[in-house]
Amino acid sequence: MAMLEIHNLHVEVDGNEILRGVDLKVEAGEVHAIMGPNGSGKSTLAQTLAGHEAYEVTQGDVSFLGHADFLEMPPEERARLGFFLAFQYPVEIPGISNAYFLQSSVNEIRKSHGLPELDAIEFQDLLAEKMEQVNVPMQFADRNVNEGFSGGEKKRNEILQMAVLEPRMCVLDETDSGLDIDALRIVSEGINKLRSKERGFILVTHYQRLLDYVKPDYVHVLYRGRLVKSGGPELAAELEAKGYDWIRQTADV
């Protein structure tokens, strides 16, 4: 059984069906890219997997690391199992430092695995190591969570969180959008450093740009709530060359 298995997933938002039967399997160690035009349901898929209550699953099921009841779990339990979503629009949390936020997060996850909590010193060491690994400035630790961060800084902060929490399955929702070329390179290097045999990735992206830096094993096209095309990295290049109209024409048939 694959690490993440999505079967015939149908999702409604405010009574509108957005996902209309998605099937996807991601093995540990694989990188899948999901591309698609705006509004096709990419974020809906990501948020549904993370457990946002606004997204109502009407059909289908998802299993993660053998847990067939994944969709019944509250978001925090999914995170504790090792599911991670890098948000397309990370929220700003006033008054809470990144370090405190992440320490609380790490310790909740550790507790759920029966591990002892990290004290402030131990956590500081861990954080410093991870900041170096994914190349974010040390000031990130004391700044409030995403508060006053530029778009690029927010995305880099998501990558830092991913590095600290060491999840098994990472869904990155348009982590490349809004990044200038230097930030894109830093973020991509961060992702590449976190690639491992134990970890799976779904890269949700609108453009091929990111995939030049982070080579996917598979590329899927999401269109109108369905994965209408799947292939290797060459599919991304083809999309880039032909544009989404090409998908519209073939998929509408």
Binding site: V91, I96, S104
Partner: peptide
């Protein structure tokens, strides 16, 4: 905001814990 609570939950913390931390953040400003 619900999105704030969800952000905490997506990082392994319960809604109750998120509430407590957010309250602290609100006052500590």
């Amino acid at each position: 905001p619900r999105e704030h609570l969800f952000y905490f939950q997506s990082r392994g913390m319960t809604a109750a814990m998120a509430h407590a931390i957010l309250t602290y953040g609100f006052a500590s400003e």
